[in-house]
Write a protein that binds this DNA or RNA. Structure first.
Lengths: 227, 227
DNA sequence: TAATAACTCAAACGTTCGTATGAATCATAC
DNA sequence: GTATGATTCATACGAACGTTTGAGTTATTA
């Protein structure tokens, strides 16, 4: 394997495990068994290395999402695409890639999960912007499938789905029950997110069931003085 | 305001915005208008400062959660607590605090959102462990309300709820539609998470609707070669 | 007012960081 | 075989980092 690839793999792993700022180029080159100067030779800078880590996997991933949605839409003709299919096109590709890419894919998804919660400036922002294009595309599909939802509420619910996905990616290695296990078609974690997201997206919008009418609410909130 | 409090506020803000490793003590002391050495005088180290930032707000927050759940449980007697009440006890306190604590609270919640996706070692791990106690306590309440769910699936769904909450906390300042607006009772973002989570938790467990049976799935997955 | 404690300050410590340099090594083509 | 371009290497640079120090200042107590 070439030095360039070993550097990408090592950076992917260490950025995912320790974060961008907390990972030094010396850590990376040590893990990759490469010289310190090789990073600046092959990539130019630490930030450019991070962008290269993203580019390697993110482009095919997002293309797969959009192609699958396109296929579903042309299949549906003038009708809106079923909700389950939109969710599948959005969520299955990262799980499939994780399975296909092996260890490196799991590191990458953990890194992506980190970025969602803690953007790295400015390199991480290009990733966010790229993903935002995908999100907008899916939002219009969701809007057709769930026309009763307001735009704001739809955006919020999409973020809840994104959150579940990113959280699973970031924590899969820490909690065994969140660790993806196999192909998307049989992965219980993906199935769990899909079931959860499908029910959540379909929930009625204005149902003022909260706060629960109960004396305990008032009691707990009033006693909640900081000690 | 004392130097110690100004340091806590500044650290809270900068850790939340830029992350722990990417924030220097010089940044913090400059924002707090304090001397560089004051951090080590008042807290001992940078890591200890982070733990102090957590301690100030996390303890009352988690206590409020548990007290509210206790109140609901004693109110319900031998019956399981309603799902909506469990979710309220879990999710409303951070929103209430965010409203109550103002700008500092929003910084803090953003920081918490970051930690969920990118644990800071070792200081951040004490936070995770502390939260895990709360999560276990709520898991048993959820288990009584949703006895048909397996333990693993219940754990996964709890993580989906946690994800939505953390993601909202971390991104509230970037996406206006995710920005909490007011008291928990009237906050549309909290209502959105609650509705979404309630429907998601109640989704049937084994419903092999995925992958959607469609020719587009096979077409898209087979064409998804990396170019 | 004098003594003691609490706190602030400027300056410096040693370390580690990302980056740059120029020579050495390797591969390839004539 | 030798010249040329690509890559690797040890080394060094200046900057920024967390931490420490000891003198200076302020507040508290008797």
């Amino acid at each position: 394997m070439s030095t360039k690839q070993r550097l990408l793999d090592a950076a992917e792993q260490l950025f995912a495990e320790n974060g961008f700022a907390a990972t030094s180029l010396r850590d990376i080159t040590a893990l990759a068994e490469a010289n310190l100067a090789s990073v600046n030779y092959h990539f130019g800078s630490k930030e450019a290395l991070l962008e290269a880590v993203f580019d390697r996997r993110l482009r095919p991933l997002n293309r797969e999402r959009l192609e699958m949605l396109d296929a579903f839409e042309s299949e549906a003709g003038d009708n809106p695409v079923e909700l389950s299919k939109i969710l599948w096109a959005f969520l299955a590709p990262p799980f499939r890639r994780m399975y296909e890419w092996g260890e490196g894919g799991r590191h990458f998804q953990q890194l992506v999960g980190r970025i969602y919660a803690a953007p790295i400036r400015p390199a991480g922002e290009t990733f966010i912007k790229q993903f935002e294009l995908v999100r907008i595309r899916f939002q219009s599909a969701f809007h057709q499938a769930l026309p009763h939802l307001s735009t704001d509420e739809l955006t919020r619910r999409m973020h809840h789905v994104i959150a579940a996905m990113a959280h699973t990616m970031a924590w899969g290695r820490a909690f065994c029950c969140l660790q993806p296990t196999g192909r998307p078609e049989s992965d219980v974690v993906l199935q769990s997110i899909l079931s959860f997201a499908m029910a959540g997206m379909r929930a009625p919008e204005c149902q003022p069931i909260f706060p629960p009418s109960s004396p305990a609410v008032a009691a707990a909130t009033s006693s909640g003085t900081d000690r």
